[in-house]
Design a protein around this nucleic acid. Sequence first.
DNA 1: GCCCAGGAGTGTG
DNA 2: CACACTCATGGG
Length: 289
Amino acid sequence: MTSETRLELEIEPLDLDLTLGCGQTFRWIRSEDSSWSGPLGASHVRLRKTGRVLEVRTQAAEGIANAVRTYLRANDDISAIQRTLRRDQELSRGIRGFRGLRIVKLDEWECLISYVLATYANIPRIAKMIDALAREYGKKIDGTTYAFPAHRSLASASEHELGRCGLGYRARYVRQICEAVDEDRIEELKRLGYRDLREELIALPGVGDKVADCVSLFGFGRLEAFPIDVWIERAMKRIYGQSGSYARLREFASARFGPYAGYAQEYLYHNERMRAKGRACAFSHERQE
DNA sequence: GCCCAGGAGTGTG
DNA sequence: CACACTCATGGG
């Protein structure tokens, strides 16, 4: 007896394939008609972009328009961000093709757990672990979709039970984080500046430099965060000739990209991955050896 | 079978 | 500070 809601939004620029396709978030599924479906908060939505129109279909809920706009960071001024980043000589030639790549705003708790799971696992497996957790501990949204588990629900599970979702050694970290962080703690963290937030996140078991920056960026929306994984490390060396410790690379990125380092990171990340797949890539010049 | 994965923790030089 | 080793397991 639930009726489907259909609405149209305009969020520009926006490329769903680039934004939801790989890396930032792990729960969206692309259909053959190039629509994307996935859980958004407590609802299940289907997104499709035709021209400038973003079509949203969902079974649920008031406020879905705002939820989508928040999730896709509709208020980010991509043109202004790209104008700023284009001052970087190396970045300037390629980023126009990434205009539709937006940073997403994930739920803080979901993001924290997801990126702890993401350590030393590839993307298909990360998606599988999260899906298993949602199926086991998340609230059922509709026939096949489960919401990401709330803190209360995950906290009720033992390490062994969590391990049955295929988490491997990560089960212990999830268990420990459940003990160290609850909803109130998340609210406190929201009020911190990036540096303090980062410090508090790193203090958590299973959270190091990279995960702390991913959670700062995708969960807490701190656009100055610059997560450095193996792909970014390669890009920094290949394009800028930079290598060394995490702190050193982070300082380089911060000085170079400033308050929008997070967007620069996404552009570099996607470019490097496309390059590895042998596709046309934006910033192609070599600088190694 | 092999190699690698959006790393982190721990120990050592 | 830098490096080396381990962690548990699944995808490609």
